[in-house]
Structure formats: structure tokens, C-alpha cells
């Protein structure tokens, strides 16, 4: 991150929580509450909550294999021009082939009724999705969405 990026950031937060599935709802509600001052539309809020839920679920299910002793990190940055950046990080098993993992309907756990749509949903609900992963080290999912201009009445 260069200095220019730092100047752009207006507000930021960082959350760390146990790798437990009940924290999926905590994570998406916390992000929604953090961006509430931007007055997003109901649609934008729902899309962001869904994307957060997908990224956190991936960490819980895939990165850590539901091991509750591990920790998931969620960061949220509010930048100039109503740009919201969400970063979900884990120190789990990592993804061997990110491109394959991002394909719609691809799942590494076909026996478990997983839809394989997590990354596809993140991609379609956010403006930009970046996935950085190193096998054995962990995964970082970066999602960016620019909110529409708020109307003043």
C-alpha cells in the first residue's frame, strides 16, 4: 500500500474472531454497521453483507476445516469517493489453484452439498474481487465496491 492509498482512507476497522460459524453473521453485521454512515442503499448493504458472508464462510469451512481454535480477520476501509474495501484474511491451508476455485460451481468438497458459488457471488455483488493465496500459509480476499452517490433531500 503506497502513501497515496493511505491518504485516500477516511475510516478503517479491523476485527478478529474465532473460526466459528456463528461469527459469519457477526462479521457481516459488523461491516454493515461500519459502513452505515455512508448511507448505502438497502441493495448495496445486502450485497456487501452477502459477499462478507461468503468470504468468511470460505475461511471457516475451507481454510481452517472448521477448526474453532483458529482466527479469521476482517478489515474494512472506507476510502474517498465512497469506495468500500473489505479484506478477509486467514492463515489456513491456502488455495492451490485460485483460478479453478473461482470458477462457478467448482467445489473442493463435492460430498458436502456445497454449491461452489461463493466466489461467483462475491464477484457479482462487488465491483472487484482479488484473491491472494499461498498453500500452507493462508488466503487474503480483497473486495471493493464503490457506493452510489447518496441523494440529499
Amino acid at each position: 500500500m503506497n502513501n497515496n492509498d493511505k491518504d485516500n482512507i477516511q475510516n478503517k476497522m479491523k476485527l478478529q474472531f474465532s473460526n466459528r460459524s456463528e461469527n459469519e453473521s457477526f462479521a457481516r453485521v459488523a461491516v454493515a454497521a461500519f459502513i452505515a454512515p455512508l448511507d448505502p442503499t438497502v441493495e448495496e448493504l445486502t450485497e456487501i453483507k452477502t459477499a462478507v458472508s461468503e468470504a468468511v464462510s470460505n475461511a471457516i469451512i475451507h481454510a481452517y476445516g472448521e477448526n474453532e481454535n483458529e482466527m479469521v480477520t476482517v478489515e474494512c476501509l472506507i476510502e474517498k469517493d465512497r469506495r468500500v474495501v473489505i479484506i478477509v484474511t486467514d492463515n489456513g491451508i491456502g488455495i492451490e489453484d485460485v483460478e479453478l476455485a473461482r470458477e462457478p460451481l467448482y467445489t473442493s468438497k463435492p460430498d458436502e452439498e456445497r454449491s461452489g458459488m461463493g466466489f461467483t457471488v462475491m464477484e457479482s455483488f462487488m465491483d472487484k474481487l482479488e484473491v491472494e493465496s499461498t498453500p500452507g500459509v493462508g488466503t487474503r480476499v480483497i473486495m471493493i465496491k464503490k457506493l452510489d452517490l447518496a441523494y440529499e433531500f
Binding site: R28, T46, K49, T50, S53, E54, S57, E112, E113, R114, S115, M117, G118, T120, V121
Partner: peptide, 13 residues
């Protein structure tokens, strides 16, 4: 009020 892609798995199953 909220559903993510886990709902898809439930329906498919």
C-alpha cells in the same frame, strides 16, 4: 431476510 450461497446447497441437496 438474508441468504448466501449456502442456501443453494440446501436446495440442491
Amino acid at each position: 431476510s438474508f441468504m448466501d450461497s449456502s442456501g443453494i446447497g440446501v436446495i440442491m441437496g
